[in-house]
Design a protein around this nucleic acid. Sequence first.
DNA 1: CTGAAAGCGCTTACAG
DNA 2: CTGAAAGCGCTTACAG
Lengths: 344, 344
Amino acid sequence: MITIYDLAKQTGFSAPTISKALNGNGKLSEETRQTILDAAKKAGYTANMAAKSLSTKHSRLIGVILEDVSMKRGFEHPLFGGLLNKFRNEIEMAGYDLLFLSKHFNEGMSYIDHCRYRDVEGILIVNPIDDDEEMKTLGSCGIPCVSTNEFIPGVCTVVTDNEDAGRTAARVLYDAGHTKVGFLGAPFRENSPAALERFKGFKSELVSYGSDFDERYMEVCDAWWEGAGYEGMKRLWERCPDLTAVFVVCDALAFGAMKYLLEIGKSIPEDISVIGFDDDTTVLKAAPTLCTFRQDRDRIAQLASEMLLQEIAGVPSPEIVRVPAQYVNRSSVRRFNPAREMAY
Amino acid sequence: MITIYDLAKQTGFSAPTISKALNGNGKLSEETRQTILDAAKKAGYTANMAAKSLSTKHSRLIGVILEDVSMKRGFEHPLFGGLLNKFRNEIEMAGYDLLFLSKHFNEGMSYIDHCRYRDVEGILIVNPIDDDEEMKTLGSCGIPCVSTNEFIPGVCTVVTDNEDAGRTAARVLYDAGHTKVGFLGAPFRENSPAALERFKGFKSELVSYGSDFDERYMEVCDAWWEGAGYEGMKRLWERCPDLTAVFVVCDALAFGAMKYLLEIGKSIPEDISVIGFDDDTTVLKAAPTLCTFRQDRDRIAQLASEMLLQEIAGVPSPEIVRVPAQYVNRSSVRRFNPAREMAY
DNA sequence: CTGAAAGCGCTTACAG
DNA sequence: CTGAAAGCGCTTACAG
């Protein structure tokens, strides 16, 4: 391991001068800078981050909170896995490394302690544990934070424009001639209102068409996975067998819902149309292929990294940044009228 | 940020004594140890890893090489995403953090430089870039390494027992009465012989049944994704339209293969049976549901972390550790004879 | 059993 | 433009 002192000895300059040359700060003659840089290169010098971190308090580490309790898929989560791929890439280009924050680290150290332990410079909150009390403290812990899902006081959230997507879903179904449309939701949580926002947009758009949305057509599933969708659809269908379409808050639930409908002998989309959410690759190849909304993982990740890097640099972020979702038309929605040229 | 010196001042002991108490090493009276521990707890003391790392050369960081060039799915890779979930968990319980090694970090720093930069203590090689020259140097770089896919000189590899799985695939098809069976492979690479191993096992088992495997029944796809499976199956089928079954080296390829077969009007499994590999959730819900092999992600991850932690502790690992795959029977294999009680 | 001294590799004022 | 001194927070021998 070659150090700054080795370089000092080799070039005849002092350690601080080496440091300045390597970091490009302070005033130095172009000549000595080049001499030093060449020597460093020749010697294969690599800085030691622990030492840098200790003296500058800058670790170049971004903490990531990724606890997939709602779907239990971790890195394979349909939204967050892809988001993290892009985020990792962005952050690395800026010279940062990812560091996963964990609660079961060192006999249950808190996220904030984990951050202090590693001198983490910023936190990306991808998916926290439900109702984790510590979340509320993150906004004021002094470390810049950005969230890509949950709303947390004092933390910038970069998130899909769920209301807008909800409105689009309503428009798609309305345009296709559906009048009896249902909504299959998921547990409502104060800080993670995706399901509720999608519902609000959906309902408001329907209302704008003059159709007074009947709350009986709305059902909430117990969780975010397939089985819950099956059960939720069962309850909804048994109450409202006149439905011709249903907008489901995520693809995993939608798949469960379709499973129920197919089991009771319904055809999709002939008897009932289904729209999901997430463009989950896990159900992508199911038949019928599901109309859905693709959340823009790359854009969310990119904006999140921009916001976070900016905050680290001292520039405050907006409280919320919305990213539009893209409607993906496949085969699970029936048209009662001839198709028109339409873009959603 | 409270330091060891604050604790020293508060308790009246010296910094080294605080250090010993906190780390549980060296001789200390039980009384002073308790006093110090209590003070640390009361003050909410958290060690600073940069300082620790600098003085001990132990960063408690495990580097991870995850470059999904073969499937382009990154964290969402059907095998590696799940593997990493478990590995992360294991490693965190042991007080380590994950650190992704990257080539596009800081203007193209090498993996090894990245490791030195962060004082990484061990490396998990999940999925490197094809033919990366640096891989060959990892085994002798002085940092303990474990691989979960590629074979690298001097590095312990924890990997699915592919030959055994190949044999099982042959047995399943033979038992079901198939005699004209094909094999759809993927690019053969010296250090990553999964496809070849599966073929070897498959072929050897067929040969053991007296059926001389005809190489014409073997076709290699250009890549590991769906489109390549479609094309590969097309070539294989056009050459050998008498096939009644095919063993495909991964589910993504198998899905492409099925797509081709269905397109030309074949029924699965009535006309042709298909067995895949990976238990890829991405094609799980396709119809017909694919018979496949589930690689034991959790077991591989657990063994990999064990090996790596052991190596860090100075205990050498075996060169190779095999983990059995599990045959998953679904609906894509036709039986020509009555089902018997069989376990694979 | 406890502490004074020195060191890990780097950077930050501050002189000159 | 360059360098001597001190410090970041911790640990490692070595005394006592």
